[in-house]
């Protein structure tokens, strides 16, 4: 049986752990609010961008942009967006389970976030490039990733690009989801990653034929890559929101568990202490009786 000193030592160590997880929970909670806010403010922009794209596409007849070309899919690229750090519950684990479902031989991976790169490298999958992004993802970081996959696609090295990321549903739920990125087939697909309500697009009067200035090629040639870059940025923001939420929940669970353990250990400690006192008393009285 453990001595009182052992138990005391364990209580102390668990208390330290609880303190750390509690602190991490607080930090994650603060960051989560910021990240969620950042993910939400981009919505009106995303919505308007989608409306523009949809209307532009219906307004042009027979226009074909290289980014819209759909080819039979031989090789495809998947952008895995994970977190940089662990200790965020099952977030990365769930994501990587989806990765293992993909065919190793025809898929090349592009990763964002350290954990994702590590996983792809560890499981010996083809890693085309790895990117990093900061706590508050910047547009430039998203643009770098987006440009890279567009290059892959335009050079014909891959025939389709998908993005795998933990979609933010609410603080408790994050869903790993695989969304198509390239080719920009049906423009409605662009909305998928941004969970913009699709009804609003169809409500819009799309019968109008637009004039383009200077010409449609130039305008769409700018608009399409921009919208891809923006979509990528939005995905990074959502991933951050998911990560912070998952971490907060995981840390809260850890803190609760630690508190429970402290409670149990304290009970055991007190029991043992009492038993010891009783034993000592007994020894003293028996000794006294033997003398007299």
């Amino acid at each position: 049986m453990a001595s009182t000193r052992d138990i005391r030592r364990r209580i102390k160590s668990v208390k330290n752990t609880a303190q750390i997880t509690k602190a991490m929970q607080m930090v994650a909670a603060a960051k989560m609010r910021k990240a969620q806010q950042a993910a939400l403010v981009g919505r009106p922009y995303a919505k308007l961008l989608n409306v523009m794209m949809a209307e532009a596409a219906t307004g042009t007849v027979g226009f074909d942009h290289p980014l819209m070309q759909s080819r039979p899919v031989g090789k495809r690229a998947v952008v895995v967006v994970g977190s940089d750090r662990g200790l965020c519950g099952g977030l990365n684990g769930n994501l990587f389970r989806e990765v293992t479902k993909l065919d190793k031989n025809i898929t090349v991976f592009v990763t964002a976030g350290k954990k994702a790169s590590l996983f792809i490298a560890r499981t010996k999958r083809t890693l085309a490039a790895e990117f990093s992004y900061k706590d508050t993802p910047e547009f430039a970081e998203a643009r770098a990733i987006s440009k890279f996959v567009q290059q892959l696609f335009l050079k014909g090295e891959v025939d389709a690009v998908d993005i795998l990321y933990p979609r933010f549903i609410n603080t408790l739920t994050q869903q790993p989801s695989l969304v198509p990125f390239l080719p920009i087939g049906k423009l409605s697909a662009v909305t998928a990653g941004l969970n913009a309500p699709k009804d609003e697009l169809s409500n819009h009067d799309t019968a109008e034929i637009f004039e383009f200035e200077p010409d449609e090629e130039t305008v769409l040639g700018q608009l399409l890559p921009h919208s891809l870059n923006f979509q990528m940025h939005q995905i990074l923001l959502e991933t951050k929101a998911s990560e912070q939420s998952a971490r907060m929940v995981a840390m809260k669970n850890a803190t609760d568990n630690a508190k429970q353990i402290i409670k149990d250990l304290t009970l055991e400690y007190n029991k043992l202490r009492q038993a010891n006192i009783t034993k000592e008393l007994l020894e003293i009285t028996t000794a006294q009786m033997a003398i007299s």
Binding site: G59, E208, I209, E211
Partner: peptide, 19 residues
Amino acid sequence: TGIDGEMGIYPQHMPLMTQ
């Protein structure tokens, strides 16, 4: 200011998309 210069837009302008 559009890509091709400044423009003034009044209601009933024709549908146009530009940079």
